[in-house]
Structure formats: structure tokens, C-alpha cells
Design a protein around this nucleic acid. Sequence first.
DNA 1: ATTATTAATTGTCGTTTTGACAATTAATAA
DNA 2: TTATTAATTGTCAAAACGACAATTAATAAT
Lengths: 232, 232
Amino acid sequence: MIEYSRQPHYLVAVDCIVFGFDGEHLKILLVKRGLEPEINKWSLIGGFVGADESPDDAANRVLKKMTGLEGVYLEQMQIYGDPGRDPIERTFSVGYFALIDIHKYQAQLNDDYEAEWFLINDRPKLIFDHNQMVADARKKLRYKAALHPILFEMLPKKFTIPQLHILFEEVNDTKIDTRNFSRKISSTGLLIKLAEKDKTGSKKGAFYFKLDKKKYTANSQAFLNLIPNLKI
Amino acid sequence: MIEYSRQPHYLVAVDCIVFGFDGEHLKILLVKRGLEPEINKWSLIGGFVGADESPDDAANRVLKKMTGLEGVYLEQMQIYGDPGRDPIERTFSVGYFALIDIHKYQAQLNDDYEAEWFLINDRPKLIFDHNQMVADARKKLRYKAALHPILFEMLPKKFTIPQLHILFEEVNDTKIDTRNFSRKISSTGLLIKLAEKDKTGSKKGAFYFKLDKKKYTANSQAFLNLIPNLKI
DNA sequence: ATTATTAATTGTCGTTTTGACAATTAATAA
DNA sequence: TTATTAATTGTCAAAACGACAATTAATAAT
């Protein structure tokens, strides 16, 4: 008879791929690892799941510590649990991706934890299977963002259509026609046009928009087909 | 400094929601639990992750044992890890859902393991958080099946359009217009019409179809929008 | 042999969505 | 006043969509 006591016990951790957008490029937040093995090498932000917290709790705790932010958009990807993925001891890791407004990130934490933002396409090699995690996160972000309005999570409260446009192009690594993009975004009914314009970067200026929070909350799970000619 | 040795260690398990289709209704496979606590109560099929296997390995092992099948369609849902979800000891469980051809299921295993198929809408209460897992699995199955051609995994090699139609209606718990359904399924180009007809259940008979394996493999990740007026 | 019955199969049409395409507008700089 | 630059908006044909019911192929009944 199988009994609990005879079963092997393992460490369980979380690792977060933190995405941000600086107005031009998609970025991820990495830290220099603070413990052996592989100390001082670049890794995802993460930590062990404590005795009294769920994996989601642990991810939120780690995010709070490393970004200063609470209530971040967080999505569980999958569990990474190949034997030997951690050379010291069998460790399972629950992978998450997080979307944050990079401007809310508390920059002093860079020094505190040796954290740094990297361009998604120009990042250092990471420890263990973290490179695979990043690849998986990018794929899942692309998938989800094609169907659901989640990319707003990476923009400030006021943003312009051109900003949103660039973000979509960055995430999907493709060019999107401005006319069709505007029409599609507009047809979601999720945006509210503000009177103010963003004059940085152009003479004409681009109108600011904000999210219609009510509709956004109500429609956050809606299928939207936001990417033309989508193939995954 | 955080060190591995000071961290708590936990049990890690897998639990599988096994879906099948008997031609009329969606069903799930349940077993009477063979160990304390909650022995002899209905539960999902599952087991602990062994020292030398990944969670995917463990899920496949458990599925092989309980259904006799290998290479089953298996999809990881999420990890269940609330403290206290298992009253004996902190245990994480990786939830999977599996789609199998119910006719390939080896029925003698019913007796060997006290396993039984239940209508998805008429099933016993399950142990721990397994009821939540089933609800999550149903939702995820619906989501995935709306976008990707995965329901074929629950049908035999030869199947008819009416069979497929009923399966879609069962999964989505809604009526779907036959004309629009046929057109949409046909437009995927995934089906090959056979000469043979299925005469059971109607005088006219319904033509058998089979999957175009090549296109299926190539398109298994394609977005298809298979459900009309989809809201999730 | 003809008709009745039953379920499978197929077709139409107006509306909406899509994707490919470039001209216009609003502001500042020259 | 004109030039410049980026934001914004419009058209059109093709495809996809959803709502709708008639026809067909087989067997059973008369």
C-alpha cells in the first residue's frame, strides 16, 4: 500500500518572467542570483514556496520584493520538474509570467538586488532551464495577447494608440497595419479618448486614451482576435 | 543567506481528469481512492511523482496504469498547492486533463482498480479539491476545443459528422446549427470522407470520416474559431 | 410497388469582419 | 507661407459569419 511517508519529498519554487515595455521595446527583468549554485549568474526572479503560502502567494511575494509592486497581472504557465533541472537537489518550479508597467517599477531595487531590465531579444544566458522558461513565456504571452486584452497591463494609465501599436508589434514580432489596428482596437469599445495629447515625439501629438475599467473587467476573458492572419 | 537545506520539502503529485465520449455524452473516469485519508471515496486518478520522473512522466504512468493506454492526449492545467488542500501533509498536485477514445479503454481495469465512468453532469462528490479540478478542466477543455481541433482525440478513427456534432454540443453545453457546423468543420480541411457509411441509428446512414493525419499534425496549433458566438 | 418515415446532407442570403491599400489632417519648424 | 513629420481616417472587394429550411438516401410500412 502506498503511504505518504514513503514518498520522496521535494523543494518547490516559483520563477517569474517579468515583462515590461519602455515605449519602444519589450523587456524582461532579471537578477543576479544570490545563492549557490550558479551564484552571481543571471536568473529569473523567484524563490521557494514557504510552508504557509500557495504558489500564487509565493509569486506575489517575490514580485513585491523585486519590483515594489502589488496586485500585478500574473499568470501561471506550467510546472518545470525534470529530474536534474537543479543540480543540487530535486526542485520543482512553477513558472509565471507577469506584466507590469515599467514606470511603476521602483528603480532603487536595481541596486538592492542587482536587478536589471534587458531587451527581450538581447538578454544574457540564464541559469538552469530559465532560458526555456523565457521562451515559453514569450509564446504564451503572444498567444494570450492575441485573444485577450492583456497588454494594457504593461502601459501607463494614459497611453496613445501609437504606443499600443508598437507594443503589439513588439509582442508579435511583426508589422501591423495602422488603419486596421486602430479599427480593431476601437471596435473593442475598451478605450476612452481623453482631451489631452501626448506631444513628445511628434508635432501633431497623439491623443491619450485610458481603459474603460468597467468594460475591461467585464471583457477581460473575451475572445477578441486582435492579431491579423494569426498563425501559432 | 537562503540555502536549500533550510527550505521545507513537500510531496508532489499529479491528478488527471480523463475525458471520454460514448457517442452521446461527455464522461470522466473516476476511481475509488486506495489509501488513507478518504480511502474508498471517489477521486481523480493520480499518484505521487517519483524521484526519477517528471510530472508529465508521472501523469503518463498513471494513465497507462488506469486505462491501459499510452500516448494519450494530455495537457497540463495548473498546479494545486494551497496549504491544507491535503489534510495529512502538504502536497502539491499538478492537474492534467486527458482526452481518450473511450472504446480503447480496457474495461477489465474497472474491476482491477474500482474505476468507473461517470457522466460529467452526474458524478459523485470527490475528495479534497478534485471537484474544483474537474470544473477547471471542463472550462479549459471548452476553451481549447473552441480554438484547436482537439476533440478528435475522443473519437474513434472512423467517425461521422453527427457524432462530431454531438460531441461539440456536449463539450460546449449548447446547440450548434448543423449547416454552419458542417461548413466550418469542412473548411478546416482536416477530414477525409470515406466510402463507408455508419448505418446504426439511421436509415440513410452517415458517412464515415477520418482525420487527415498530416494536416492535423501540421495544424494542431492553429486557431480555428470552431464555436459560434463564443463568449468565455 | 408505392408511400411514409427518419435522419443525413446540402444551400441561400444579408450582415459583419477582414485585410490590403494611401490620402488627409494637425501641429511645429523652416 | 511653406515644408515637414507623425497621427488619423476611409474605401473596397473578399471572406466569414449566422440565421434560416428544403432535399436526399435509405428503410419500414402499406
